[in-house]
């Protein structure tokens, strides 16, 4: 999100006006987050009692210890670690398979290339939402329910990733490939010494998008595993804090803490993330 130094900044009344608009909009966007923070740091029973005659917008019987309890809670920690492990496997897998497949489509000649590409495009019409019911049957048949492989293997390939990295590879000048041909580069050497290093920015964007998708997914882990030890954080959030009414603030604190890794990524890698998110939109 670059700024253009050439244009002038609004000043005076105009600037004040825009700041008021931006602050109002921020308040609206952040309002539910704010109420969640209020609930997470308010002790459950006193807060619910205060709702009868209060607005509910200020914390009651503040207890910051809730965040510590969440971080020491086995179920929360386990779910976070599981989500991290699964996301790591999926991201690594998707980057590897997408890079190799993209390379094949751009730099290799092989029979049925067009057919293979059509197969790839076709998967865009078959998202997990459409196939979930049959896929659950499949992993039940091969006894992958409640297993790490059941949670990851269906996501080890990504058509989006292939398209994105393929686009980057197509941008490599053909003269560079010719030069490498003359020098005697093998395909593997060209892939790892030239194509991948040159495409690092795009691959980086894809890593972020892929991680975002893997970490945030709900539907598949919800049905591919029902054992508590194999619930990802997104699935676990549904039940955390529901066991007892006194735990009400616990669930909200857990939800907030579970979003922290992504918030850090959003702030640290905003530019790369935007590039990945807009990749489809820019192509049109």
């Amino acid at each position: 999100m670059g700024t253009d130094r050439h244009s002038e900044q609004p000043r005076g009344i105009k600037a004040v006006g825009w700041y008021s608009v931006l602050i109002t909009l921020s308040a609206i966007i952040l309002f539910p987050i704010y109420t969640t923070i209020v609930r997470s740091i308010s002790s459950a029973i006193p807060y619910i009692n205060s709702l009868k005659d209060g607005s509910g917008l200020v914390p009651v019987a503040v207890d910051y210890g809730v965040f510590g309890r969440v971080l020491q809670n086995d179920r929360f920690v386990n779910a976070m670690l599981l989500s991290a492990a699964i996301s790591l496997i999926i991201v690594t897998g998707q980057v590897l398979t997408s890079t190799l497949a993209a390379y094949a489509f751009v730099f290799l000649e092989f029979p049925f290339k067009k057919l293979a590409f059509a197969v790839l495009v076709g998967t865009l019409l078959l998202p997990i939402e459409v196939t979930i019911m049959a896929n659950i049957e499949t992993i039940r048949d091969i006894a992958w329910l409640n297993s790490i492989q059941g949670l990851t293997v269906p996501f080890l390939a990504s058509a989006f990733g292939i398209f994105l990295i393929r686009q980057a590879f197509l941008g490599i000048p053909s003269e560079l490939r010719d030069a490498a041909d003359l020098e005697g580069y093998s395909h593997l050497r060209f892939l790892f010494r030239v194509a991948v290093p040159i495409s690092k920015p795009i691959i980086g964007s894809f890593v972020l998008i892929s991680f975002l998708g893997a970490w945030n997914q709900y539907l598949w882990p919800r049905f591919a595993a029902d054992k508590e030890s194999l619930q990802t954080i997104q699935v676990a959030l549904r039940n955390l804090g529901k066991s007892e009414i006194t735990d009400l603030n616990f669930g909200y604190a857990a939800a907030l803490l579970s979003a922290v890794p992504l918030l850090i990524i959003l702030i640290a890698f905003q530019r790369q993330l935007v590039r990945g998110l807009t990749a489809g939109a820019v192509k049109g």
């Binding site: 000048p173 003269e175 010719d178 030069a179 041909d181 003359l182 580069y185 290093p197 040159i198 690092k200």
Partner: peptide, 19 residues
């Protein structure tokens, strides 16, 4: 094959490896 011809080529765009 190209790589066995003992040829060197200078390309219009130079074809340098940018990284």
């Amino acid at each position: 094959p190209a790589s066995d011809r003992d040829i060197a080529m200078v390309f219009q765009s130079y074809a340098l490896y940018p990284h």
